[in-house]
């Protein structure tokens, strides 16, 4: 008699049940929703203050600006905090509770269990970002309206990609003492770009899952996994900050330091985000490839340990 297959979807459902039971999955999703409210709310607040201070009555934003801002605000907190917690629960808590042994005595290949845990941790993070973006758009309709004069956004950070600003716009602006205006992308085009940005943000989340998975195999403790993963990212963040400061300094410019900063985990992910913001697909190298490489390297090492190590 052939043995019944073990569906991957079933394994994912089991992992989802664990984090849902802990309430953590809902917390991560609420975290995304919260950013969906904060993004448009923040822009609305800034505009309201601007109007109070005597800025013109022109409305330079619309709901998609709210959606994009919500995504921008959500991606690094979701990646840095919520996702690490999820990964800690999914890997390290199974070790600390002793339930990993109860799983490994079953006729399921360990790599499948590993893949289900990774898929659920990453998937919840991506859904959290999706919720931030969608709620940002919906809340944006209420607060910011369906349409706006977004041609004024050409010089704005984060959402400036929505406007095609002429190359000499800044010179013109300096001469005429007015903000540069550009040709805004169409509504559907901007929606497409936001969807693409969501895709690259999903890739930005992946190294966090891989690092937490690896640290969990080493420590087998939820607290140490969280602490160890944070240490990895803090050290990486320092390396990025020092490298980029040194690399950007006009007094003591060091090209190598700047390049190394770009090649840190944080640097590559920031580069990936920036490339996406500018709509510059060409800039996905090296950022996108490096982000993927970090994910594969940490993930492969974690999987190797997951497969090989004894459960005592």
């Amino acid at each position: 008699m052939s043995a019944p297959p073990i569906p991957f979807v079933g394994l994912c459902k089991a992992e989802w049940t664990k984090i849902r039971g802990r309430g953590l999955a809902w917390a991560v999703l609420l975290f995304g929703l919260m950013h969906g409210l904060v993004g448009p709310g923040m822009i609305w607040g800034v505009l309201a203050v601007g109007h109070e201070l005597g800025a013109g009555e022109t409305d330079p934003v619309d709901f998609l600006v709210g959606a994009d801002t919500a995504l921008y605000l959500a991606v690094f907190p979701v990646n840095g905090f919520a996702l690490l917690l999820l990964a800690c629960i999914l890997w390290a808590e199974d070790y600390s509770l002793g339930t990993m042994a109860m799983i490994f005595v079953r006729p399921v290949a360990r790599w499948k269990v590993f893949a289900a845990k990774a898929a659920v941790a990453w998937g919840v993070g991506v859904v959290s970002l999706l919720l931030a973006t969608v709620l940002g758009a919906l809340f944006g309709i209420l607060l910011l309206g369906f349409s706006g004069d977004i041609g004024m956004l050409g010089s704005a950070p984060v959402v400036g990609w929505m406007v095609d600003v002429p190359e000499d716009a800044f010179a013109t602006a300096a001469a005429s003492n007015s903000l540069p205006l550009g040709d805004p992308m169409g509504l559907l085009g901007r929606m497409g770009w936001i969807a693409a940005r969501l895709g690259t943000c999903a890739l930005i989340l992946a190294p966090a899952v891989a690092v937490a998975a690896l640290v969990a195999q080493v420590t087998r403790s939820p607290v140490l996994t969280l602490f160890g993963s944070l240490v990895v990212f803090v050290v990486d963040g320092f390396a990025w900050a020092i490298g980029s400061a040194w690399g950007a300094s006009s007094l003591d410019y060091n090209e190598l330091a700047g390049t190394l900063a770009e090649w840190t985990i944080l640097g590559s992910r920031r580069g990936l985000f920036r490339a996406n913001m500018d709509g510059a697909i060409g800039d996905l190298w090296p950022s996108g490839v490096l982000t993927l490489a970090y994910t594969v390297a940490f993930g492969a090492l974690a999987l190797w340990m997951f497969n090989r190590r004894d459960v005592t």
């Binding site: 569906p7 394994l11 006729p107 399921v108």
Partner: peptide, 13 residues
């Protein structure tokens, strides 16, 4: 019962 359902997923069928 939720514990059994979780472990059942790893057993298959």
């Amino acid at each position: 019962v939720a514990n059994l359902r979780v472990f059942a997923a790893y057993s298959g069928g």
